[in-house]
Design a protein around this nucleic acid. Structure first.
Lengths: 237, 237
DNA sequence: ATGTAGAATTGGTATATACCAGATTTGAGA
DNA sequence: TCTCAAATCTGGTATATACCAATTCTACAT
């Protein structure tokens, strides 16, 4: 004999069945919480526990104060390959979009200098970009680019691939890279920019790139929604 | 002028400061929720929101019905390299341990056959193992191994590296691998085995390995706690 | 057709209370 | 000293209620 699962988990199952039965698809909106609570004959609090469960599982997501929606398919992404965001999003049948939120010339702060083997105060281009897939904001990206190698970059159009820009305009290509990836809650500015609650689950990805001659090229930070991507890597010995 | 953040976020800050002030370190236990609520002059409900926030950020973790603890440093892990769990855990100064939970010979179910290019019903060794670092259970691992290549494997000691075993006893080495990684909530058996609540944030990692001659060697699934590891990959062109 | 102010809706936060079930501790008995 | 059962502690679940603030909708005026 098995224990009866708690109410909110039973409710989770009912909601899941209901979603499947209704054939709700990508980005569809669920009814209001109060309405759902009545329909499923439960409290709004218990309902929210069930919704949070499905959110954790990546079935639904919420957009701050706008409601609950069906999560689209994950985007596949190979962090070791040099293909621009727009290219691989399009190749999977989705529509990409990028907004540049911040664009400035800064001097390298201590933490960055240490991380990238720079002298503190070195000139750095700092970009913050928000990237969408099918009009859902999936990630915030910070780019810190060695400004000594590519002066005048600020004037260019940065809503497309920076890599392509660096290569065509400055003959710069990453040769060696160190990539770190781990789950991390999305907080502060990134949470606001992505329209999610502080503390939402996310995936953090950072990448330090060095150019042909070994000099520091770029430091890249990406804050992804937890349900947005699937990393795929092929390894051959 | 900036808005005052909600109470539970203020409380999050206080708790964080308190933790740092007390110099609590890895695996230390926090006081009981009711006690903390009194000390910080708040409700248990609000307190739990603040704790959940710190949990999402990876500062603290909970062990089912036992309480809240300080999260240890993340383990670094290169999924593309062929080093056994015990080796890289030890090399980072931690103490590894592995328990074998399930050990059986099965026939390949449809989903596995499809994923790995097998005929349905092919003989497969199935292992489920729980792996600890410093006595905290960090992941559940499923191994599905092509039994035609390594008969008699069940009788061996599987609490150490399977790779080493396959190489030394059967001359089998992975040549080509496909790895997928994405955040995924930990539910069902895996949640129980890891002593966490259903729906806890986690990282899912799977790996299909093919041997020298191109034949299917192993399918591996790993369910990690979200705060337990940091993937590090070096890429050189 | 467009813009805007106000109303209504809806998700987010906060407090109070109670009981359940697993984990830990305690203490009696062997 | 050891074992095991009972008591206690503690986190997990469930319900009720209220108000706030952002978003969305509506209706009116331009």
């Amino acid at each position: 004999m098995s224990e009866a699962p708690p109410v909110y988990l039973q409710l989770r199952g009912q909601l899941l069945a209901w979603i499947k039965g209704k054939q709700l698809s990508s980005q569809d909106k669920l009814p209001a919480e109060r309405e759902l609570a009545v329909n499923f004959n439960t409290t709004r609090i218990t309902l929210r526990q069930a919704l949070a469960q499905l959110e954790a599982e990546g079935v639904i997501y919420r957009s701050n104060r706008r409601g609950w929606f069906i999560t689209p398919e994950r985007l596949e992404y190979d962090p070791s390959r040099d293909v621009g965001f727009n290219v691989y999003v399009a190749s999977q049948g989705f529509t990409p979009r990028t907004e540049t939120i911040v664009k400035s010339l800064i001097t390298a702060p201590a933490w960055l200098a240490k991380k990238c083997n720079l002298v503190e105060g070195a000139p750095i281009y700092h970009f913050v970009r928000r990237r969408y897939v099918d009009e859902r904001a999936l990630l915030i990206e910070h780019n810190f680019i060695n400004a000594t190698s590519c002066s005048g970059l600020l004037a260019k159009d940065t809503d497309n691939s920076l890599w392509k820009l660096l290569e065509s305009e400055y003959q710069l290509r990453p040769k060696k890279r160190k990539i770190e990836i781990y789950p991390q809650a999305i907080i502060a500015d990134e949470a606001q920019w992505l329209n999610v609650n502080t503390g939402s689950a996310g995936l953090y990805l950072e990448r330090i790139s060095y150019a042909q001659a070994g000099q520091f090229l770029e430091f890249d930070q990406e804050y992804w929604l937890h349900d947005a991507l699937k990393l795929v890597v092929n390894v051959e010995e």
